[in-house]
């Protein structure tokens, strides 16, 4: 079945279009994870350490938002960024920035919810020590985040997995424009609709390989770090 080799051949021959797609996929999903981490980690830590009315409700909501349907997020971001929408003036629709925004919305609850759980568990362990050291609230948060860093890597990976695998949101806000907003997942959707199933499967395997590679890299870094820091 020579057709089945198409995607592999594309990889081996260093097809520039394929590499541009891979690069854009990584750029969009990694940017979304970084932005979501900048929002989600402090937010999760804050919820973990603060007692306020309605906190239980917020936690339930946050956990539920981990399952936000990408299509709904895509539609909401689309309506927001559309020229007729509230942020239309920025002209972000059908750009990589729009895809990053949509994936940030998807990934932030995942990172925030997992951070909240991790930090709360660690806080139970550290509370006495940090209180005895007379550490202020900011110092506490910083210490807990830093000491939970290896567990938080797992939260980031969960976020990255979600972003890299998702097609529903980015195909709506990105438009799947060739050479501009076409990512691995939207390319797979396109090849499937063109009936080129072998190429779609091949691209799918490439995507899975990339996700595995990113996870392996993070795992190695985590192991090395844990040996040093416990």
């Amino acid at each position: 079945m020579p057709q089945d080799l198409t995607a592999l051949q594309l990889v081996l021959s260093g097809d520039p279009a394929l590499f541009a797609i891979v690069r854009l996929s990584l750029y969009v999903s990694l940017s979304a994870v970084v932005l979501a981490a900048l929002i989600g980690i402090p937010l999760g830590a804050w919820i973990a350490l603060t007692r306020f009315p309605g906190r239980q409700g917020v936690i339930v909501m946050l956990n539920a938002l981990m399952g936000l349907p990408p299509v709904v997020v895509g539609l909401a971001v689309y309506l927001t960024l559309s020229r007729s929408g509230p942020l239309g003036a920025f002209g972000l629709l059908f750009t990589p920035s729009a895809m990053i925004i949509a994936q940030t919305v998807l990934v932030t609850p995942i990172i925030a919810a997992l951070t909240r759980q991790t930090i709360e568990d660690l806080w139970i362990e550290y509370r006495d020590e940090l209180t005895a050291m007379n550490l202020g609230p900011l110092g506490r948060v910083a210490t807990l985040i830093w000491d939970a860093r290896f567990s938080l890597v797992t939260a980031l990976l969960a976020g990255f997995g979600r972003a890299a695998a998702e097609v529903g949101a980015i195909i709506i806000v990105g438009g799947n424009i060739e050479g501009f907003t076409r990512t691995m997942t939207t390319a797979i959707a396109l090849e499937t609709s063109k009936g080129d199933l072998p190429l779609a499967v091949g691209l799918g395997l490439v995507l899975i390989a990339i996700v595995i590679a990113v996870n392996a890299l993070a795992w190695t870094a985590r192991r090395a770090g844990e040996r040093l820091a416990g």
């Binding site: 005895a132 050291m133 110092g139 290896f150 416990g230």
Partner: peptide, 22 residues
């Protein structure tokens, strides 16, 4: 404390942390 919590850092870094906190 009876069961002191060790910060997830090296022994020396645990001490430096306390120095910084003080």
């Amino acid at each position: 404390f009876q069961r002191p919590a060790m910060l997830r850092r090296s022994a020396a870094a645990n001490i430096r942390f306390a120095l910084r906190a003080a």
